[in-house]
Every structure is written in structure tokens, then in C-alpha cells.
Nucleic acid binder design. Structure first.
Lengths: 234, 234
DNA sequence: GACGGTATGATTGTATACAATTATACGTGG
DNA sequence: CCACGTATAATTGTATACAATCATACCGTC
């Protein structure tokens, strides 16, 4: 079930294993290493100027993140992610983000609520300017706030896992402008439901928000997981 | 999000790392290593007659399973699991087992359905005899069948993760006789809903089944996570 | 020419040596 | 007596050497 100490992600920056891990993670998510490609310990070690040991340990972590698959005595391969996997993830996330929103309604702090409002406000601005990169970042951050606000480290961790998993699908061109706006409107509705302490509505909205994101992805035919078109904004 | 190649669990038996992993896993789940206890690489290596390397890699896998927590340059500690964690897990599982049952209604094979029926039939027998160990095993197996039947490797993996996580809570004395019978009755109802292709009912029943298991745990005051009383049948 | 076995190279698995970091204990100065 | 700094021991992090395993290519036999 993976690493439940989220603070390690920071600490890891200062170890070789951590740096290797982050580099490989980025390269896989960005599509540099393609699906089913084999990762060789020595090659990567040389490329990064480290020995095999930290590379091997980074491999275990990447396996932990679901990004690679290690076959004993054979090697490490970039994990394949099928269209069905993506669909299943969105189904699962839909339920869990709903639960998350419901819990957040009770537990959210004033600061978190304020950051949410700010996030939505900023996203409106960037949407009008067509700043897609910022929109994507704000979108990620909105969900992060929600995950933190539910005050459940188990749920938070699971959602983060799935969220990062689907980042592979919506790599670079992270959203169309129309979906970006619609998505932010949905964020606003969720935020307002939470603000009004209407847990049921928050749950239902968050639920639908994820399903809409998926619908949008499918509608735009963005099924080519590693293709350039892979996209979809939440 | 962890290791998505379930077959590795088998292969791992034949590597030192795999053996170390399984041994430590068992020792943690059985309570030999207690909460927040520090695991030292050399000590465990000596105890099992292996060097630090496979121990270190096993540690990464245990971290992956959520059983230990590795603090850089400090050490590995057995993960603490609070009463709230347990509650959250049951909440999450309730939703996901519901989804699982819903999907299984469509996807279940004849063989899987037959094994389910057999499972329930056998559990009735063992309940009448007071065979608690067999009841617990059949209970685990019932849920395993359900996980397989949903035909979603993402959902199956997540549910297995959570399921194994809570095994720590209901270690040895796995159920009271009364809950065992009630639990098996719920299994039967779920099975029948699936058999009749009533997805909504199956979802709702599976949902309630997990919540009941949790309620029962709480009612019996089985909150002492590592105490001898820790129990609860699903 | 096709099949099978063996040899060779490449790659991962493990052990160990060394470096870096952290915790502890002790001593010194205030 | 407390605070602080330094030295030392313990522990983890990394590099490298060696062993085991797997893939490939070559050669011989049928």
C-alpha cells in the first residue's frame, strides 16, 4: 500500500536514491521512457553518475508508485496502463473524491478554505488568459487541498496515488480551454457546498466532477495513453 | 500505489529479498515486532543469515505494503496504525467493496460463482462446529473471490492492500461465533444478489457488510490494535 | 535445413568495504 | 547546574566485487 510518510518525498531529495527516483519518475511521466521499455540498472546509473545500489532502491520505490514492474532476474519495465485501467481509476477516484469532499466538509480549516477560494479565483484569471500550464497546476493544487482537508492520511494517500497515476494520461497539454473553465466551475460548486457545510452535496459534486473529467477525456478521444493528444482536465 | 504484479509474490519466494520480506511481514502482522519498534538492518540480516542488501530491499517492499516507515538516515520503524486509521480504512473499503460487488455482478464467471457458493456452504458447516480458524480463512477467501471477480486489477489490488492492512487488527482470534454466522449470512445475500444480476443490491449489501464488520468491531471494544483481543470478522 | 545443446555475454542478485550521517556521551565553559 | 561543543560509536547510504541467472549465438547432430 505504499509509503505513508509523505514527508519522505522532501527528504528524498537529499539522497542519491531520492534523486534517481525523482528523475526516473519524471522521465516516465513525461513519456521519455515509453510503455514496456526496459530500464537497465547500469545504464541509468552511468547516465546519472551513481552506482547500481541507489538505482536498485529507486526501482523499488518506482515499483511502489506503480510506475515500473520488476521481474525477478529479468529487469524493470515501465508499467503498461490500459484504457480500462484508466477507466477503473476514474471510477474508484470518483467514489473516493466524493468521500473526501464529504469528510472535508467537517474537517476543513479556515486556511484551507481560503486557499481554495484563492485557487479558484486565480484559475478564473488564467482561464481568461489561456494560460494552460497554470490552469493545470492550479487544478492539481485544488485536489491536493481537498485531500489534505479530509483529515484522513489513509484516504489522502490513496487519492494521491491514483491522482499521480493518471497524470501519465494527461501529460503535457493538460486541458482544453472549455474543459478548463467547466472544471473550475465545478471546483467552485464543490467549494461552496463545503463552505455551506452541505456534506451530501459536496460528495455528489466531487463525485460528478471526476466522472465529468473522465467523460471529457473519452469524448475527446484521448485514449492514446502515451500519444501527444493525451489530455483531460479535472 | 504499490506493486501491481501480483505474481511477484510467488517469484519472490525464491530470492533472499523475498524470503526476508515474507518473514518480516509475518512477524509484523503477528505482532512479534510491535508498533514503532525500530528494525535494524544488520540485526535482521544476522538473524536470517543474509547481508544487508536484501534486507534493505525487503524494507522498501515493506514500506510499499505500508507495514514499516523508513526515515532517511535514521532507520525503519513498524508503522503505527491508529483507531482512526482503522475507521477510515473501513469507510474506504465499504465504498470500494460495494463497487467491487457491482462490477462483479457483470463480470463474475461461473466457476467463481460456484466457488462462492461452496465457500458459504462450508462456512455454515464450520460455524456450526465452532471452527474459528476455518471460518476466518473462508472469510478471507470469500473476499478474494469477490476481488478477482470484479475483473479490475486496479480495484483488486487496492482492496487487497486494505484488506491485508486490517488483518493486523484482527490478528488471531478472528471472530466471535455470532458475528461469524451473521457475516456468512451477509456473504450469502451478496452472492444471491450477484447471481440474480442485481448490481445495485449487491453493491448496497457489500457496502453494509463492511460497515457491519466495523460496527461489530467497535461494539466489542476491539480497539486495542496490538492487544490479544483484537478481532472482528467480516 | 531444422532442432537442440552448450558456451558466452549481459544483467540482475548478493556480499562486503567504505563514506556519510546521526545519536550519544563526555568534557568544558559559563 | 546547565548549555554548548566536540569526540566517538552506531547506523544508514553508497560503491564495488563477485555469484547466480537469463538471453543469445554458435555449433554440431540428425
Amino acid at each position: 500500500m505504499a509509503n505513508y510518510d509523505l514527508k519522505n518525498e522532501v527528504n528524498d531529495k537529499y539522497s542519491l536514491r531520492g534523486r534517481v527516483f525523482q528523475k526516473l519518475r519524471e522521465d516516465i511521466l513525461s513519456g521519455k521512457y515509453r510503455e514496456h521499455e526496459e530500464l537497465k540498472e547500469v545504464a541509468i546509473g552511468e547516465e546519472l553518475g551513481v552506482s547500481r545500489t541507489p538505482v536498485r532502491e529507486a526501482f523499488r520505490q518506482l515499483e511502489l508508485e506503480g510506475l515500473i514492474q520488476i521481474v525477478p532476474n529479468r529487469g524493470a519495465y515501465v508499467t503498461g496502463i490500459t484504457a480500462k485501467d484508466v477507466k477503473d481509476i476514474y471510477m474508484i477516484r470518483s467514489l473516493l473524491e466524493g468521500l473526501c469532499a464529504r469528510l472535508a466538509t467537517e474537517k476543513i480549516t479556515k486556511e484551507q478554505l481560503e486557499e481554495m477560494e484563492e485557487n479558484i479565483y486565480l484559475a478564473d484569471f488564467h482561464a481568461s488568459k489561456g494560460h494552460m500550464d497554470q490552469m493545470a497546476e492550479l487544478d492539481n493544487r485544488f485536489h491536493d487541498i481537498l485531500y489534505e482537508a479530509c483529515d484522513s492520511k489513509m484516504l489522502e494517500h490513496t487519492l494521491r496515488d491514483y491522482h499521480q497515476y493518471v497524470l501519465r494520461v494527461r501529460q503535457k497539454t493538460l486541458s482544453t480551454n472549455t474543459r478548463g473553465r467547466a472544471s473550475n466551475d465545478e471546483h467552485r460548486q464543490i467549494m461552496e457546498a463545503i463552505k455551506e457545510k452541505d456534506a451530501d452535496r459536496a460528495e455528489q459534486l466531487a463525485n460528478g466532477h471526476i466522472l465529468n473529467a473522465y467523460e471529457n477525456m473519452v469524448k475527446n478521444g484521448l485514449y492514446e495513453v502515451y500519444g501527444e493528444e493525451a489530455a483531460g482536465s479535472e
